[in-house]
Design a protein around this nucleic acid. Structure first.
Length: 570
RNA sequence: GGGCCGGUAGCUCAGUUAGGGAGAGCGUCCGGCUUUUAACCGGACGGUCGGGGGUUCGAAUCCCUCCCGGCCCGCCA
């Protein structure tokens, strides 16, 4: 492979500066290097433009259906999204596609599945037999274990489509099975099978199994429906192959063939991955494709080779992205360490999630659910930087370029900064349910400007539900709620007497500051430790050992409720 | 063993394209908000930029080397 074919286009120090300069004739640079790019998607877009591609420019992603459409899979869509958005902003017509590689055979049972709502369930909760009986068959030939869609593949594709919709990404889902069925792959298949010696020579450099007998086509057995790998003859004129349905090794397991011998057309089977991937580039005219680092040293080099030397096409601009970890551990659906887009959207706004994908792809990133507040804080700072409120040149340069894409408004960037409640404060507001009360508390803390419109306020308060879900899910220190019924608690006599006195004080009508001060006075008067007294208050109102500054908080509540609660009456 | 990509403060990260001040947020500590608790405001502490060598007037940034981590180097995708 030519060094220029390295997929690490965001890592290299000396890129093809000449090409970039030609593509960007108005770039002003003194030393001849390319224009500085604060946003990686612009670097990629430069590479694409330098090739002078035909329009529409095609951006692809794709995965093989597996158990769960998790956050990592979504790189395939979101990394392309930013490049597509940048190219559109530069005036290009762009088509973003996503191939569901659903003619691949199911090779082993997934441990976990995601239902239509993106919730992760175990195999015990679905018709697992529908999967187990169909090992070896294409995903599109396997019933949906949830019994909702026409196939397992359709179920999985619908999940990703729904996630893309949730994040506002216009992506066109393409079924690989349909590409074969419609004949789109006929030409590629013919090219692969018409020069077997050439294909074997190319592939044997990457795969030990490729020998003088190897035929790069996997027919689907007409008898048992499984994807097979033993082709005994090729008839190019008829566009068919002869095959025998033999056993297939999958790791340590063996998926048994049925022994059937038959004939399959080019549309009744599939190409192996190393040919299929470049085949997709050819068929779909792909100009750019991001892929995970696992492909970087494996199928990418062979794909480049196949594209040029078997199919006679140029491979797309590549981009390797690093993998995410979740809570410090690798994403693994079998180990249960996965998170889906819908799950995350219960915890944060779509813009924050898009921001996460806008960060530099070559860095391995951990998504720490416990520390989700840090991610949101970083987004908020990123947003403030866009509006010129942060004294950080680098961040500001990145934000000025990337922010409009992150919030999905490249065409009409906002001119006013949205009102944002700090995430942990929003979590605190979750302790009460009344929106008006939430608004009053937020105003008291100065998080809502006096002249904010109803729409702005509603948008700001929308974060409260997210943050509250986060506090509940992680059971962290922000997870407390105002108790509507009297918690089960017992107090010493002197604490009880102090609570009664405080109740009288509140009943007499005082504001929050006064109540706060009185709490100290009352505690002293009854010879009660101040900490114990506050703890009693937190127990009564939150059934917890800690909470917000109590006196001022009680001043905001309905007086009658506070008085009766302090008297342990209701 | 070979190749690729990473390694910056306790945590999460920016800065590496374009060599010149080592940074942000969070956490911690101290202080303020009329006397502990969330929030808010101010301040401090905190890093041999993985180690070493080299180039340079000057290196987190370029080169070499070593260490650590992930991925690939069977099959599959």
């Amino acid at each position: 492979m030519n060094p220029d074919d390295s997929p690490h286009i965001l890592s290299e120090q000396t890129r093809d500066a000449v090409g970039a300069a030609e593509a960007d004739a108005d770039a002003e640079d003194d030393d001849g290097d390319g224009e500085f790019r604060a946003f990686w998607a612009d670097v990629v877009a430069d590479e694409i433009e330098a090739r002078d591609p035909e329009e529409p420019i095609v951006i692809k992603g794709g995965v093989s259906p597996s158990g769960v459409a998790h956050l990592g899979n979504f790189n395939e869509i979101m990394r392309g999204y930013f490049v597509a958005a940048v190219l559109r902003e530069r005036g290009h017509e762009v088509r973003q596609v996503f191939t569901s590689d659903d003619k691949d055979p199911l090779r082993k049972l997934p441990r976990k599945l995601a239902n239509a709502d993106g919730e992760i369930v175990g195999l015990g909760e679905v018709d697992a037999g529908a999967l187990g009986r169909n090992l070896g068959k294409p995903y599109t030939a396997i019933p949906d274990p949830f019994g909702e869609r026409e196939s397992y593949a359709a179920h999985f594709a619908a999940l990703l489509q729904a996630d893309a919709d949730r994040l506002g990404v216009p992506v066109e889902m393409i079924s690989n099975t349909e590409l074969y069925a419609d004949g789109d792959f006929d030409g590629v298949t013919r090219a692969a099978l018409s020069d077997l010696a050439g294909v074997r020579e190319v592939l044997s450099a990457y795969q030990d199994k490729v020998d003088g007998e190897y035929v790069p086509f996997n027919p689907v057995c007409a008898e048992c429906g499984k994807v097979t790998e033993t082709v005994t003859a090729v008839d190019l004129d008829a566009e068919t192959v002869e095959y025998a349905c033999t056993d297939m090794a999958v790791g340590d397991e063996v998926i048994e063939g049925c022994g059937h011998e038959g004939t399959a057309t080019f549309r009744e089977g599939k190409l192996p991955w190393r040919l299929e991937w470049p085949g997709q580039w050819d068929v779909l005219g792909v100009d750019f494709e991001p892929f995970g680092k696992d492909h970087a040293e494996g199928s990418w080099p062979s794909g480049v080779d196949v594209a040029r030397n078997v199919l006679g096409v140029e491979p797309p601009v590549p981009m390797v992205y690093e993998w995410f970890t979740l809570n410090g551990e690798p994403l693994s659906s079998s180990a249960g360490n996965v998170v889906t887009v819908p799950e995350l959207l219960d915890l944060l706004e779509p813009a924050v999630l898009r921001y996460f994908f806008a960060l530099h792809p070559k860095k391995a990133r951990d998504l720490d659910i416990e520390r989700l507040d840090q991610l949101v804080d970083r987004f908020d700072r990123f947003e403030r930087a866009y509006f010129g409120e942060v004294d950080d040149e680098d961040l500001t340069a990145f934000a000025e370029r990337a922010y409009p894409f992150v919030i999905g408004r490249a065409a009409d960037p906002p001119t006013e900064k949205p009102v944002r409640l700090p995430y942990t404060f929003a979590a605190v507001l979750g302790m009460v349910d009344d929106p008006a009360f939430r608004e009053r508390l937020a105003r008291d803390e100065g998080h809502i400007p006096d002249d904010a419109s109803a729409e702005v306020i509603e948008a700001a308060l929308a974060r409260v539900e997210k943050a509250r879900n986060w506090a509940e899910r992680t059971e962290n220190e922000y997870d407390y709620r105002l108790q509507t019924v009297l918690p089960d608690a017992e107090f010493d006599d002197d604490v009880a007497a102090a609570l009664d006195d405080l109740a009288d004080f509140v009943a007499a009508g005082h504001d929050g500051d006064a109540i706060q001060a009185e709490m100290y006075e009352t505690a002293r008067a009854h010879d009660v430790d101040v900490g114990d007294f506050f703890a009693a208050g937190y127990r009564l109102f939150f059934d917890d050992t800690q909470g917000p500054r109590l006196g001022e908080f009680l001043g905001e509540l309905e007086r009658e409720y506070v008085v009766s609660r302090l008297r342990r009456e209701a």
